[in-house]
Amino acid sequence: MSFSSDQFIGKLSSLEDTQESIASAAKWLMSQYRESAQVAECWKNYMLKSSTNTRRKLLGLYLANHVVQQAKSQQIGQFQDSFGSVMSSVIGGIYSELPGDLKKKVKRVCDIWRERHIFAPEVLTNIQKKLDDNATSLPETIPPIFKDLMKDYIKLDKNKRHIGVSKNRFDNAIQELNPTSAVYLENYNTVSKIGNMVTDSILTTIHLREDMIHKLQNIVEQQKKFLEEDRTILTEVEFSLLSKNPEKINQASADDDLLPTYEKEEDDDDDDDIDSSCDDSDSIGSNSKLKSLKRRSMDSMSPGLEEEESKKRRSDISDQDKNNEDATKTEETEGTITDNVGHQNTYQVEENAGITSNIQDLLSKLAN
């Protein structure tokens, strides 16, 4: 019978964590010893596939362990050679992603291989090297909140496997229901129980996922706060270093030397005040000097000149009074003009009065 990779993948995907399930799949594989290399390669691809969950990878390792040990007891060396050629790469690829409890189980299987010399010494050495490279003490240093998340994740993984198995049973049972059967009611009750089991598992998974999302959101918010604090500290350090940078300090000093200073001196205001007071004093002195010279010139006039000047002033005043009397008489005469003369005569009177006023002003200026 020729080997079918699809059939093999189907058997790997339907493995249960029971001795009977693993022994049944191993018996089928033993019949494919002529295609042991193809079997080992298909097994490797399945084990290293990212979509294969950790539980499936552990069960796949249990299946390979059962096959190679049966092959050794039956002296079928093909499986030891084929699985030995891919085993170290598979162990190195899956061991780091397994939770702590599964790592212990994988390590126990590898220890059995070494104790019973299942593989060649170089294969066992490579396997042990992969285990040592992935050995870590992280569980002791992981914060409590991440440990809680890890526990929830393990629960989710186990519950997910249980849901998958229960759902397959439910699908098969619901398809086999026959309404015309005499025991239809009993079969329906059985299917209902299976459906309730699936529903309970799904509700548990939903609750676990919601709780995990809430914890992750709290972690994200906390990390955002820490991120802002780190950025603030980084800015402070960079600013402090920049402010104390010798190149910046020397450049600032050089700029200060190049730029002129315009500092205000105290003596400047005093000089301005002195100059201003000097100007005011000069102006006041000049006016005083003019007045004094005028007074001296008036005092130095001769008595004859004073008398002649006095007569001239009295004559001018007399002429001015006479002119004022004539102007008054003229205004009174013009004011008696009757209204029937019309607007033209009124305008003429006003024009004559303006002329008379201008003449009077001119005579006053000449008299002065």
Rank of each mutant, 00 (worst) to 15 (best):
T54M: 01
R55N: 01
Q32D: 02
D132I: 07
E97V: 04
E140P: 12
H117K: 13
A120K: 08
V67N: 06
D132E: 07
Q80L: 14
K129I: 05
V106C: 08
V86S: 02
L98K: 01
D152P: 03
V68Y: 10
A25I: 08
D81V: 12
G84M: 09
S89C: 01
S96R: 09
T52H: 02
F119M: 02
D81Y: 08
G77H: 13
R108S: 04
K49R: 12
S88K: 06
Q75W: 04
G93P: 03
I154F: 07
G93N: 04
Y46F: 14
V39M: 11
K151H: 02
F79L: 09
W28Q: 08
L29F: 12
D111Y: 13
S85A: 13
V106D: 00
W113E: 00
A64C: 10
L149N: 06
W113K: 02
F83I: 00
Q74L: 13
L48D: 05
R55F: 01
L124S: 13
M47W: 06
Q75T: 08
K57C: 00
Q32T: 10
E97L: 03
V39K: 10
L131C: 03
Y33T: 08
N45T: 11
V109K: 12
S137R: 12
A25R: 06
Q70A: 15
S137G: 13
H66E: 15
I154Y: 05
I142Y: 13
Y95K: 02
L98G: 00
E35H: 15
W43M: 14
N65E: 05
E35T: 15
K103N: 00
Y46R: 10
K130H: 03
R34T: 14
V68F: 05
R116I: 11
N126H: 09
